[in-house]
Design a protein around this nucleic acid. Structure first.
Lengths: 124, 124
DNA sequence: ATTTTCGTAACATATGGTGTTACATGAAAC
DNA sequence: GTTTCATGTAACACCATATGTTACGAAAAT
């Protein structure tokens, strides 16, 4: 599949697609070929790739929108708040990453197939 | 304490302080007085106010930086991903909010007092 | 050679948070 | 009562990040 087509699917620009897919390529999850009949191809078994691995491949972007702004603040109040919550954030993050690890691309493909087969022409 | 002084503590602008403190005022956590000797005053018992209550007072800002962009997407792939992760995000959020509820302002004040007493003149 | 497609740099745009100015309102001090 | 100090709030400026776009080079097939 080309970046052009993927961009249409994702409602975005081919260059944006290449940016993100490039990270997946560096992680060995996809391959890219240039020229005629080129494009992106999945290079791994869907069973063996979890959303956690995708998260890693995409650079482990920050999970939380709130939380410590500064790991080692000078401010004593900030230190107290950080100390009180760092455990909670760590646990929540660990929980999420565990769940990410539980979901494989094969799981998603299966679920998608079920939805695709089951839809009742509600498209517009 | 005035917005002016609070702003210096927080390294920000008095108006920014008023914006946020205004939310706490609407939630009944602080009172504001104008004129001479005016400023902000905590109007509740520190023991009874948790970080969870502060989170609510501040409008329950989004906790996660990643996650579902669309609750009810038309895209079947997006539907599959959402379905696979919505439980995980819900659990992680519930866990965090529980921990927020466990921390009172009194806890923070106590921890701050300990840090303040224990510091060894490492200030600059 | 031409076409197709990725790779990448450079720049443009949009968004949200933060900072700033300005001015009205209220309360105390004189 | 006038002045001073402080909040309340609107309006605008600024900044960082994410996203979108243009441009062009490199590689592969026709």
């Amino acid at each position: 599949m080309t970046s052009e087509v993927l961009g249409q699917c994702l409602r975005t620009n081919p260059v944006v697609v290449r940016r993100t897919m490039g990270l997946l390529r560096e992680a060995g999850l996809v391959t890219a070929e240039r020229g005629h009949a080129g494009g992106w191809r999945i290079s791994v078994d869907l069973e063996t790739v979890s959303l956690r691995r995708l998260h890693e491949a995409l650079g482990e972007p920050a999970i939380f929108a709130i939380g410590n702004r500064n790991e080692t603040p000078e401010c004593l109040v900030e230190q107290s708040v950080n100390a009180a919550l760092e455990g909670a954030f760590a646990e929540a993050e660990a929980l999420l990453l565990e769940r990410f690890a539980d979901v494989t691309l094969a799981d998603l493909a299966k679920d998608f197939a079920r939805r695709h087969a089951g839809r009742r022409d509600t498209m517009e």
